[in-house]
Simulated assay, not measured.
Amino acid sequence: MWPQRVTATVDLSALRHNLQRVREYAPASRVMGALKADAYGHGMVAVARALDDGLDAYAVACLEEAEAIRAAGCRTPCVLLEGPLHPQEIETIAARGEPVVLHADWQLQALRTLRCATPLPVWIKLDTGMNRLGFRPDQARRLAQAVSANPALKLLGWMTHLANADAAESAGTQAQLTRFFAATDGLPGARTIANSAGLMAYPQARVDWVRPGIMLYGASPLEGHTASQDGLLPTMRVESRLIAMRDVPAGEAVGYGSEWVCAEPTRVGVIAMGYGDGYPRHARSGTPVQVRGQTVALIGRVSMDMITVDLRNCPQAQVGDTAVLWGGGLPVESVAEHAGTIAYDLFCGLTNRVHYHYESET
């Protein structure tokens, strides 16, 4: 079998370490781990199996994701964060018994005629300032009454989502917390507020449940931080290889658009990964890549299948050498910053040309 062109190696022991960090931040909270979007590009089934005995619930976006986790034999409840997406889904969701998040009146209306042997567990989402999904906070008491009046429903609790928790001491976040606590004061059910940034930066958001996502996958959710600063371990290492080298004279350009011009004679390396594999096309010259453990710089435009790098400070490089695009000693946060994006985008953007491998100490 020939070598694989681009690989993503996922360290499941690092994943479990990061879950332990969640528990250290919020020891009194139950944990709903975000496995939506194929576990942020890490492989939903593999991650679900690795964490099935460590999480109290999985958070997924839709019924299809929950069904894939169930088919893999995992028994941890799957919370459908967007609730039923269409009235036609309701009977199937009720038959599965998966907890759902309700965020709109049409969902409540569609559930009025639900008939099921066991009440469907529901979370109610309040929009405290994200202005995306959720009921107005002043509707909380009406909603509690509507759910309690429907014998087909069982209220689990109340949810909101923080818009600016990645910024420390955000006035907007403080306002959201105040609105949420005021709206749910005295109402039955559990509370859940904190995503990764919220549970790390805002102790008052560590309530009955927390909902970590990106920190499970070994990237910091906080502005200007890297995983190592927050005691997290990178879970994904993306690698390819150096497939060509050439010496380019001073004054010659490299790549599409001839945007990067050699100021002096330059040894240029070609690495077999491009936007067709999920490397960000908008990554700018200077984005770090590692060859033989040495940090080198991306130069020129990203192509569909290749990138080019400046090898002047890695004279020992040879065709066939491993190139690390992120992970290991190359923080994904640094690559994301140079590409004008976030770690979530890099993780989720890997395409089906990338081969996944899973490592674990157990």
Rank of each mutant, 00 (worst) to 15 (best):
M1L: 06
W2F: 08
Q4H: 05
T7N: 05
T9C: 04
V10Y: 03
N18W: 01
R23H: 04
A28M: 09
G33W: 01
A46Q: 15
A50W: 03
D52S: 13
Y58D: 00
A59W: 12
A66N: 07
E67S: 08
A72L: 04
P77S: 11
L81C: 09
G83P: 10
P84L: 09
P84E: 08
I93L: 13
A94K: 08
E98P: 06
E98T: 09
L102Q: 12
L102E: 14
L120T: 03
V122P: 05
R136I: 09
L143F: 12
A144H: 13
A146D: 15
A146F: 11
V147Q: 10
A149S: 11
M159L: 15
T160K: 13
T160G: 12
D166R: 12
A190W: 15
R191G: 08
I193G: 13
A197P: 14
G198I: 10
P203T: 00
A205S: 07
Y217S: 00
S220N: 07
S220L: 08
P221N: 01
A227R: 00
S228F: 06
Q229I: 02
Q229T: 07
G231V: 01
P234N: 05
I243E: 05
A244E: 07
D247C: 04
P249G: 00
G251S: 02
V254H: 05
Y256M: 14
C262G: 05
A263L: 08
A263F: 00
R267T: 14
G269F: 05
D277G: 03
R284L: 12
S285E: 12
T287R: 04
V291S: 00
Q294H: 08
Q294I: 14
A297Y: 09
L298V: 04
L298C: 06
I299K: 14
R301M: 11
S303R: 10
L311N: 06
L311V: 04
N313E: 12
P315Q: 02
P315R: 02
Q318P: 04
G320T: 00
W326E: 08
A343S: 15
R353K: 13
V354Q: 02
E359R: 07
T362H: 11
